[in-house]
Design a protein around this nucleic acid. Structure first.
Lengths: 385, 385
DNA sequence: AATCATTCATTCACTAAATCAATGAAAGGG
DNA sequence: CCCTTTCATTGATTTAGTGAATGAATGATT
């Protein structure tokens, strides 16, 4: 009960930024006295601090605003991809202090663990309070075991325990898309939105569903496999994506394949980055690639908008490097085909992209877990999280 | 707090059927003492009663099983459609005691209110404890005002207040699909499932999303407009449904249109019912209609399964009169195209159909509201719901 | 048959943690 | 300069939980 309310107060301060005790009490339906008590303990434990006074012009005593002390500790976030691991060191507010990347020659768990360990040593970051790891694949509910990751070739790998043993730091493992969604919810554009969607484009197409501030995983996990939705049974297919699936239209591979079909040679554009540049340089064929992709993205968004009626969709991932090329077309299709005003009433935000963003997502995951754990820990007693 | 735990205990008894105090305590992480207290009050208020003892073969004192007293009151559920109103009188467990239907010549709010009132009088049901109303269209969060219902020609109609004034009974208004989903969650196949989907076929295609035992409406309502999802931009269109939308494939109108295209004359099958009979009688053209529709349904289910990874989808609505014809094809497509095992790991249940089911959904809505209200009401004090 | 172990339910003292009402603190307005 | 307003705090009170002991009802054990 106390733990619960502590956590509620803390999360309210986190969400609503600098906020007075009175407002917290009003928002959470608690008495001012209770908020005074709870916030006193959170301040004593260093999680909150009294910031400047409010600058309201109104009558009456000015409020003392509370803020979260994000500098209380540092955390590390690791993105494990088939070819590299990327690390971001951030404060508890997911503000990046340092990043680094290291190539992976192979993806065995031992190699990955060792790589992460030596990377943190080199970055002088062995003192972090928590470590978040995200990777492509299905992660068990325990936040530690990888159930299945085709891209890494892993099955039932207790990567969380392995890392905790190696580093002596609490580790949370999560699917990459879910971690990004969680980070958006806590520290990104999703802040203040109880419900929103996080769509990622890149090697694949991922969907993070945030409902009530939490990532929705479905009754037994596995929700959000939006990239495998079949949009057109007669559509294209790629090596990794089924015919007509969203990934077969929108993944990096799919875009390159589409470019080849339109006569763009490997010499002209070997990579998605190069293809994006080509389109930015007004190459009509490259533009056509992104026009078509944007329209497909619009159809995909239309499905999501009709089903969830969201007010916000955050788009990110490497594929969003071409956001400027894709979004006008996506928006046009969305507004033209979604039910009623749903297509116009949804905010579409393109977030930063690149592996750094993924690693920052992992760090945000770690930070949120750490903060939740601290905020719901009472007095000196340890509390199961 | 007390109200909250009372409600939790009550809902646990409702969900898990006859259940002992000890088990409630274990499931809700409450002390046995607290459960004794809370259940004593709920019993004193008539909501619960002590049923037979458990027949466990084990050692030790036998448990005294608690059950909800669904016969405590009766409720009425009304389905308002453009052509008729249907009424179901049920006990608090959504067990139907009587039904009736009355044609509507026009759908003005006054006519509907008067029709409902005289109908309840005729059914000798003016003593019901609550009234649930469902109808096609968007209903405001207050559970009383119809924001917009094209089919009824309503806009901003406070139908809830009108009915309460006429009948002196608490009224809850809800979108028809959401009400059906809620009824499934409380009294139907969704019992015991925190998360599931309710898909309805009939005049249109509707989706009710149940997450955490509650109907998900999205951040500002309007979620679940699945019928307007565009499956194929080059698909068919109908009078009411956009080209290629799910409704343009699967609604009653769409099926008839598809039948005409396959050479089935109006004389052979004037209605969806007749078309279903024709197919049941092995007419190859009619079978083709349902084969195609089943495959489209499978594609639609595939989208839902990939996004939500549900363990249960309940299918209902008038369109499910042809469930036996549709589902084999739908299931085949679903299992063939959904990601991984998701298509096989989902239970597809065809529920009863017809306007009675809709009205029962409305009654279930009323019953659940009534029970929640009673269960979270403390002592003699009134509690805001 | 008598006793013991086990499980469910209850009782009662205790306590955590909220609320309530009163009060202090810090502003602006007349 | 006092009054009103708003925010924050304090201490008494109340609510509603937990924990330990006890009673109740059963099967198992000797």
């Amino acid at each position: 009960m106390r733990a619960r309310n502590q956590r509620e107060v803390f999360e309210e301060v986190h969400r609503r930024g600098p906020i007075s005790r009175a407002e917290i009490a009003a928002n959470l339906h608690l008495s001012p006295a209770a908020v005074t008590n709870i916030s006193a303990e959170l301040i004593a434990r260093g999680l909150l601090f009294e910031a400047r006074e409010a600058q309201t012009g109104g009558v009456g005593r000015k409020a003392i605003l509370l803020e979260v002390d994000y500098s209380l500790a540092r955390v590390a976030g690791i993105k494990v991809s088939p070819t590299a691991i990327t690390c971001a060191i951030t404060n508890l507010g997911a503000k990046v202090e340092a990043t680094a990347t290291r190539a992976l020659s192979e993806t065995s768990p031992d190699t990955v663990v060792e790589g992460i360990g030596s990377m943190l040593e080199e970055m002088d970051a062995l003192d972090v309070a928590a470590l978040g790891v995200n990777l492509p694949g299905a992660v068990a509910d325990d936040g530690a075991t990888v159930r299945h990751s085709p891209l890494l070739g892993w099955r039932s790998v207790p990567i969380g325990q392995l890392l905790e043993r190696r580093l002596g730091v609490p580790v949370t493992v999560e699917n990459d898309v879910n971690a990004l969604a969680l980070a958006e919810a806590w520290f990104g554009y999703g802040r203040g939105h109880a419900d929103f969607l996080a769509l990622t484009l890149g090697r694949g197409v991922g969907l993070g569903i945030v409902i009530g501030g939490e990532v929705y995983r479905g009754p037994r996990g596995g929700a959000g496999e939006f990239g495998h939705v079949i949009l057109d049974p007669a559509g294209p297919e790629t090596e990794h994506a089924r015919r007509g699936s969203l990934e077969a239209f929108l993944s990096d591979d799919a875009l390159l394949r589409s470019a080849r079909a339109l006569g763009i040679s490997v010499a002209e554009a070997a990579s998605p980055e190069a293809l994006t540049e080509l389109a930015t340089a007004e190459d009509p064929r490259a533009n056509e690639v992104f026009t078509r992709a944007g329209e497909v993205l619009g159809r995909a968004l239309c499905i999501l908008v009709n089903v969830f009626a969201p007010t916000l969709i955050v788009l990110s991932g490497e594929g969003m490097r071409a956001g400027g090329l894709l979004m006008p077309h996506a928006r046009r299709v969305l507004e033209g085909t979604a039910f009623g005003d749903l297509g116009r009433d949804v905010e579409l935000i393109v977030d930063t992209w690149g592996d750094d963003a993924w690693a920052r997502g992992a760090a945000g995951l770690a930070a949120s877990r750490y903060l939740v754990g601290e905020a719901s820990r009472t007095g000196g007693e340890a509390q199961p999280v």
